[in-house]
Amino acid sequence: MGSSRRAGRPSARERLLAAADELFYAEGVQSVGIDRVIEHAGVAKASLYNTFGGKEQLIRAYLEARHARASEHVRHVMECCRTPRERILAIFEAQGEVFASPDFHGCAFVSAAAEARPGGLVEQAADDHRRALRAVFTELAEQAGAADPARLAHQLHLLYDGAVLSARHDRCPTAAEAARAAAAALLDAAAGPAREGPG
């Protein structure tokens, strides 16, 4: 009986990541001390250092886990889309789902990077997330037939960032909807000549 309970219990790594996700996202990576994470996770202090090495590595792992979840969410919402245009707009619709959550506190990556030392593991994890998102926009812009996919991807990324900022700081419930409408206008403009054809 006892062994079956232990088998079903989350590992120290899983508990530390869950505690970090809850505390770091709600309160900030620098505001929350390592002792609070350890206490919240219910693990020994040595478990953190044996598993991650230190706080900066834990923050990086927390951000990488959030990136994996965000990427999976985006993949899921794009699954039912038939065209690149629909997939791009679906990304903004996915934002709206996140903004509607009562636990929404803005972008975890922007918040963590703002508190991070330049060139450190935390900044690198945040940069990796942003590069991955830009790559998705660029690929979809190419598939949509944009004359300058990199430029369109940059514009879409700016809209994405602006929606996060507005939803968090302006407490605007329609930020994602406004960003989606602006993205649709950008896509129409980018695809205009292609629609008209050579004639």
Rank of each mutant, 00 (worst) to 15 (best):
R9G: 01
Y160E: 08
R180S: 15
G197D: 05
L152I: 07
S4V: 15
T174G: 05
F104M: 08
N50K: 05
F109G: 04
Q30T: 11
E22N: 06
I88D: 00
P102Y: 02
L17E: 08
E22A: 14
A90W: 00
A94P: 05
G33A: 05
F104Q: 04
I59T: 09
A65H: 09
G2Q: 13
R5F: 13
A94W: 00
R36I: 01
R66W: 12
G120L: 09
R168Q: 01
A150G: 12
G53S: 14
A190E: 15
R6W: 05
R195M: 15
K45Y: 11
L16S: 14
H169V: 00
K55Q: 07
F24L: 11
A18C: 06
L23W: 05
E39F: 00
E196P: 03
L159N: 09
A146S: 10
G192W: 08
V37N: 11
D21M: 00
F99H: 09
L23S: 06
H154R: 13
E177N: 00
H76D: 04
A116P: 15
V32Q: 04
H67A: 04
I91G: 14
L165A: 07
Q57E: 14
A41M: 02
R134N: 08
S111L: 08
V32W: 01
T83P: 14
G106P: 12
G96H: 03
G8C: 09
R168C: 12
A112P: 13
A68M: 01
V32G: 02
A125N: 07
A46C: 02
I91W: 00
I88F: 05
A70H: 05
D127A: 15
N50E: 09
K55H: 06
A20K: 04
D148H: 09
S166G: 03
I59W: 01
D128Y: 01
V136P: 10
R9D: 08
A183D: 10
A179I: 08
L121W: 10
A184Q: 08
A178N: 07
Y160H: 08
G199N: 12
R171L: 11
A126F: 09
D127Y: 03
D127V: 14
P149A: 02
A90L: 07
E79A: 14
D161Y: 03
A94Q: 12
N50Q: 06
A182E: 11
A176G: 03
A181I: 05
A191N: 09
